[in-house]
Design a protein around this nucleic acid. Structure first.
Lengths: 210, 210
DNA sequence: ACTTTGAGTGTACGCACGTTCACTGAGTTT
DNA sequence: AAACTCAGTGAACGTGCGTACACTCAAAGT
C-alpha cells in the first residue's frame, strides 16, 4: 500500500527540497553562470546545510544535468501546446515567432541557462545540451515535413531547414534573454527580426531549389 | 633619446611577460572557460609569482578585456588580408566560407574564447564582445555595400544582411571550434553548410524584395 | 658614479570552498 | 510500542584562493 493513499509526506518533502535546490541553482546561475556557483551557495539559497545537498545530487555536475533536463521538458511542453493551435498551419512563421518570444519571456531562467551553458558550461553539461538540441532538430523536422509547402521536399533538406530554424531560435532566445528589463519595445523588433529571418530561409530555399 | 636606439631591454621584457600571461590565460581558458580560471593558475602557467600579475593587469577582468581586444584584432587582420584577394569580388560566398574555416583553424584559441565568453563570461567581458561584434557588423556592411549585386540596396537592408552573416559566422565558428580533432572530413561539410546558408540569405533577400 | 625605477619575489593573512563524519529526530514499517 | 530509515544537522579538515606588504636587484636616468 503506502504509495497510493495520501501521497507520503516523507518523499513529498524530499521532492520539495529537490525543487528548492533546482530553483536556487537556476536563479544563481542567471547572474553568474552555472559553472561559477558553488555547492555551498546553492545550499544556502535553498535553505539547507551544505552536506544535505548530497542527499539529492552526487555533485554540481549532476545538478547541472538535471537543470538541462528540466529546461528542455519545459520547452517541449510549450511546443506541444503550440502545435494544437490551428494557426500554425496557416502561418507557421508568425506563430513560431510569437511562441518563441512568449516562451522565453515566461521561462527566461531556463532559456538563459541553456543559452549560456550550451557553450560556457562544463563538458558534461555542454554535451547534454548539444544532444537535446540535436533531438529537437529532428523533432521539428517531423513537424515541418507535415506542412503544405514542405511535404514534397527531400528529407535531408527538411532536416537542414530545421537545423537553421533551431539555430535561429537559439540566437533569438539569446537576444530576448539579454533584453534589458525596461525595454519591452525591443520585443516587437526581435519578433520582426525572427520573422524576417525565417521567411528568408523558407523563400530562399524554395527559389534556390527551383 | 632612449626610445629609438636598441629598443630597450626593460620594457621589452615586460612586453614578453605580458604576452606570456595572455597566452597562458588563453590556453587555460580553452579547457575550462575563462571565468573559472584563477589568477594564481594564470601566474603559474606564465612562469611568474601571483603578485607579479598585478604589474600587468589590475584584475582578471582586465585580462579578459585584453584577450577580447587581441582576439578581434587577429580577426580584423585576417579580414583585411582576405579583402585584397580579388576572388572575393567574383564569389564572395565561397571566399568567405574558406576564410572563415581557415581563420578559425589558425586561431582556434581566440575564436573559442570569443564564442564561449560571448555568453558565458563576466558582465564586462560579455559587453566588450558584444560591442566588438556590433562594430564588426557595421564594418562588414561597408564591404558588402561595395559589391556589384548589393550596391543598390537600402542601407538598413545591407545592415540586416550583415547582421545575419555575422550571426552565422559566429555559429559556424562555434562548430569549427567544437570539431573533434581527428575528423578533418567534417570541415568540408561545415564549409558547405556555411556556403548554403549564405546563399540562402542572399537569394532569399533578393527575391523577397522583388 | 650615483640615484631612481619598477618587474618580479616570498611570506603571511583571512576566507570560501568541497567533503568527512558522527549525530538527531520525525516519518515509516513491523 | 518498538525498530528502522533517512533527510537534514553541525563541527572539523585540508586546500586554493585574492590580496597586502616589505623585499631585491638589474636596467634606466642623471
Amino acid at each position: 500500500m503506502t504509495e497510493s493513499a495520501q501521497a507520503a509526506s516523507r518523499q513529498e518533502q524530499k521532492g520539495r527540497t529537490r525543487q528548492a535546490i533546482l530553483a536556487a541553482a537556476l536563479e544563481l546561475a542567471q547572474h553568474q553562470g552555472f559553472a561559477q556557483i558553488s555547492l555551498r551557495q546553492v545550499a544556502r539559497a535553498a535553505g539547507i546545510v551544505p552536506t544535505a545537498f548530497y542527499r539529492h545530487f552526487e555533485s554540481m555536475d549532476e545538478l547541472g544535468l538535471a537543470l538541462v533536463e528540466q529546461s528542455f521538458s519545459t520547452l517541449r511542453r510549450m511546443i506541444r501546446e503550440a502545435q494544437r493551435d490551428p494557426k500554425v498551419f496557416d502561418n507557421i512563421i508568425d506563430a513560431a515567432a510569437d511562441v518563441l518570444v512568449e516562451a522565453v519571456k515566461q521561462s527566461k531562467a531556463h532559456f538563459a541557462f541553456v543559452a549560456r551553458e550550451r557553450v560556457g558550461g562544463s563538458e558534461a553539461v555542454r554535451r547534454a545540451i548539444r544532444h537535446e538540441l540535436d533531438l529537437f532538430v529532428s523533432e521539428l523536422a517531423v513537424v515541418l515535413a507535415r506542412l503544405p509547402n514542405i511535404e514534397s521536399w527531400a528529407t535531408e533538406d527538411v532536416q537542414m531547414v530545421s537545423r537553421l530554424f533551431v539555430r535561429n531560435m537559439v540566437s533569438n532566445a539569446e537576444e530576448v534573454v539579454e533584453m534589458p528589463d525596461g525595454r519591452p519595445d525591443l520585443e516587437e523588433s526581435i519578433k520582426e527580426g525572427a520573422r524576417r529571418q525565417m521567411r528568408l530561409i523558407v523563400v530562399g530555399f524554395r527559389d534556390w531549389r527551383s
